[in-house]
Amino acid sequence: MSVVAWTAVGSLTVWLWLLVGHGFFWRTDQRLPPRTAPPAGRWPYVAVIVPARDEAAVLPMSLPSLLAQDYPGEAEVILVDDGSSDGTGKLARELSVKYGGLPLAVVSPGDPAPGWTGKLWAVRYGVEVARAGSPAYLLLTDADIAHEPDSLRELVASARGDGSGGGFDMVSQMARLRVTSTWERLVVPAFVYFFAQLYPFRWVNRAGARTAAAAGGCVLLRTEMALRARVPESIRGAVIDDVALARAVRRAGGRIWLGLAERVDSVRPYPGLGDLWRMVSRSAYAQLRHNPLLLLGTVVGLVLVYLVPPYAVVAGVSGGDAAAGWAGLAAWAVMTGTYLPVLGYYRQTAALAPLLPFTALLYALMTVDSAVQHYRGRGAAWKGRTYSRPEAAPDR
């Protein structure tokens, strides 16, 4: 057989292993467990912490949903205005007056201390303010995340294990991202697919497993566990703070759960390729711990797994290499099949599934660009702040 054929066979072998041996990462059935019985005792007090920097554009679509939470216990919302220049704090107060609901406190932490990323500095201050009321749980949610009225109730019920057994120290849901523009349809579902491939949800949710991850837009954390894990202090330099948080909780002996959300949505638009490119590239190289060898391995892996199959099909058809063509087609078919559940979750047409190799090429280029920006000293830039050498998810 030709070199192309052998390479295509190698890609097919990888895909068959990914299909059955990698935590069934491609399935989308990890959802909050249904509550089958009413909770026992009083509902615990929850503090909802919202770090916000220049979020006036999305706040009217997200904050009212938090204020309107139908929660049987006591809860409050603490919006941490992280040096906004667009009137985020003032708008939050106006929305609270207009919509009522849960009590809202708007606080400001000042400039981040050395060694802290802006978001975690804001979370630290929000946690400090919340502790004055001794909440049993902290809901960490981003300013662009909208919640259905029963979101907090169901999160707390799942964390307590009411009616379903168990219980968790941290429950995290990956919010359904906005998918409206052409580029969002092409790139966003793949973002969730690749994240699940890196951190298979079943492995994350298995007690005692080494894999740990969370989705930073919606994290319910037991306050006692936050103290034990020393968060956010122990992860203060992390750009990929959700994974860092999950690792810290797991190291402290906590039980974590991660799944896809059904009633928690991101309202932040990414209408163009440039918007999506910046979202991915700002932290991609940090995920690889700024290691050139990991970058090289990642790019080679993406080429072998995602780009070789369609290339082999073209080579088989145009060059008469039947072995390469059939092996490439089989690998491409498995790849396409594993992508269909995520497209279904996002209510997108199955016709997008065969285009996954093109999207993977985009992600490879975004990752390389992330490394280039790092070595140019621009690091992870977000909302006017640049971290020239940020941490991904510290192990300490």
Rank of each mutant, 00 (worst) to 15 (best):
P309N: 04
V129H: 12
P232D: 03
A207W: 06
R289L: 09
L32Y: 01
G133L: 05
A371G: 07
P390G: 01
P51A: 00
V14N: 09
R263K: 12
D70K: 07
A238D: 15
D111A: 13
L91P: 10
L120N: 02
R124H: 14
G21K: 10
R289M: 10
S181G: 04
L91S: 08
L293M: 02
D150T: 10
M170L: 14
L258T: 00
A52R: 07
W121G: 02
G115E: 14
L63N: 15
E154C: 04
V267G: 06
I78Q: 11
P232M: 00
S62A: 14
G101I: 00
T28I: 02
P232G: 03
L355I: 06
R230E: 15
G126M: 04
P341M: 08
Q287C: 11
P38Q: 09
G133R: 15
G316R: 03
R222V: 02
S318Y: 11
A113I: 11
I49R: 05
V192D: 07
R289Q: 09
P60M: 07
R131A: 07
R263A: 13
S108N: 09
I78K: 05
G163H: 04
R255Y: 11
A190L: 09
P39V: 05
A209Q: 04
Y199P: 01
A333P: 02
V14S: 15
L361C: 11
P112L: 03
G83I: 09
G297Y: 00
P394C: 03
D321Y: 11
V264R: 06
S108A: 12
D54C: 15
A92H: 12
D111C: 08
T180M: 00
V46D: 09
S2A: 12
A157V: 00
R255T: 12
D142F: 08
Q69L: 06
H290N: 08
S318Q: 13
P354W: 09
T298S: 10
R93G: 15
R385F: 13
G259A: 06
L67I: 00
R255D: 14
L227P: 01
A52D: 09
A157M: 08
D111Y: 13
A143C: 04
T386A: 10
G253L: 07
R385Q: 12
L120Q: 04
A246Y: 11
V305F: 07
R160A: 06
P103E: 08
G259K: 01
R236K: 08
D29T: 03
K383A: 11
L120H: 01
R255E: 13
M366R: 04
P390N: 01
P109V: 05
G10I: 00
V80A: 08
L296I: 07
A159Y: 05
A40H: 01
A130K: 06
G344K: 05
L293C: 08
R263L: 10
V280S: 10
G10P: 02
P309G: 07
A364L: 13
L139H: 14
G259F: 00
L245D: 03
G208S: 13
L307W: 15
E76R: 12
A8L: 09
